[in-house]
Simulated assay, not measured.
Amino acid sequence: MVPLDTTDHYTFQLSDKVTRQKVTFKNRFGIKLSGDLYVPKNIGATALPAIAISGPYGAVKEQSSGLYANQLALRGFITLAFDPSYTGESSGEPRHISSPDINTEDFSAAVDYLGIQKNIDRNKIGVIGICGFGGYALNAAAPDKRIKAVATSTMYDISRGAAKGYYDKKTSEERTKEFVQINEQRWKDAENGTPAYGATGLANVPENAPQFVTEYAAYYRTNRGFHPRSLNSNGSWSLTNSVTNMNAPILAYIEEISPRPILIIAGEKAHSRYFSETAYESAAGLKELLIVPNAVHTDLYDKIDVIPFDKLAKFFKQNLK
């Protein structure tokens, strides 16, 4: 683990052509979300297009989403990187839980906030979801027609992964066994009055761990991406966290994003690539799947020379107009 003296640490350098301001806003569940608003300097009086960004799953806005926001602000957008409910500086108790419903709502709440800012054109708002928040971003865009364009990067379908396991190999017997374990844990949590958490998931990765786990640790547990508020760096999800994702498919209505455009970006060598490919196949209308050569899942978290920011900027400039 990397020791840090301040929780204001960011894992990237803010551009001198961009300003960053802490903001808060509430979702429809009353949870106060914390975000960083990135604004290009010297924009004048023109109302600009805006993009709300969140993810990866288990990360905070000082990590990958903030890096994306900074880069896209450099390219002419007002951007909002935000911590999802129950994580980072956002409110919600107990801590370190996720919900396909609430985390989908978080994106629409971000659109609410952006759309009432005087320097933003509310008819030109898009969203980007990174890793697990790619799935939630697509889920938000289906019913929220205010979202004019949606992009995902190194996407996970958290619900599918939780319900079916990697590459859909989890059997019905394994799924039932997992539910029974969660049920037993709920009895314990009810008796104790607080949820239980596992050990810090990436703290002690064994040498024989799958390569993608090693790649996660190389981001979250080193100077490259460590942040003390990131549960992937410094904590874990609750032991009962997966239950609602296991029982709530989130991409059932992905076709309803059409005719609005979708850009799906994945690494050629990412273990998660199949999530992006399935989402692309299931989507209708204007859609594009961009495979980044030789990239693994975490390369698209922070490697500025690998992440296709110019492509993202072009996509949103063409579609937020």
Rank of each mutant, 00 (worst) to 15 (best):
M1E: 10
M1G: 12
P3A: 06
Q13M: 10
R20P: 05
T24K: 14
I43Y: 12
I51A: 07
A52L: 08
G55K: 01
Y57H: 04
Y57D: 00
K61S: 02
S65W: 07
G66L: 06
Y68P: 00
R75S: 08
I78T: 09
I78Y: 08
T87I: 14
G88K: 03
S90F: 07
S91L: 12
S91F: 09
P94G: 12
P94E: 06
S99L: 09
S99D: 15
P100S: 07
I102S: 04
T104Y: 02
D106H: 15
D106S: 05
F107G: 05
V111P: 01
Y113G: 01
Y113W: 15
N119M: 13
I120T: 09
R122W: 07
R122S: 14
R122P: 12
I125Y: 00
G126A: 05
G132M: 09
F133N: 04
F133M: 11
Y136F: 08
A137K: 10
A137N: 12
L138G: 07
L138Q: 11
L138R: 09
N139F: 06
A140N: 09
D144I: 08
A149H: 04
S153K: 08
I158A: 02
R160G: 02
G161D: 02
Y167W: 03
E174W: 02
T176R: 13
K177I: 04
E178R: 01
Q181P: 04
Q181R: 14
R186W: 00
K188V: 06
K188W: 09
D189I: 01
G193E: 00
T194A: 03
P195Q: 04
A196V: 00
Y197Q: 04
Y197D: 00
G201C: 03
V205C: 03
N208R: 13
T214L: 14
Y216W: 05
A218R: 01
Y219G: 03
R224F: 09
H227D: 08
H227S: 06
P228Y: 13
R229Q: 06
S233L: 02
S233K: 00
N234F: 01
N241G: 00
P249R: 04
A252D: 14
E256W: 02
R260I: 01
I264R: 03
A266Y: 10
A270D: 15
Y274P: 12
F275N: 15
F275T: 11
S276K: 11
S276I: 07
A279Y: 14
A283C: 12
A283T: 12
K287T: 10
K287P: 04
E288K: 13
E288C: 05
L289N: 11
L289Q: 10
I291L: 09
N294M: 05
T298G: 05
D302A: 12
D302N: 13
I304F: 05
P308C: 10
D310H: 03
K311Y: 05
L312A: 08
K314Q: 13
F315Y: 12
N319F: 06
K321S: 14
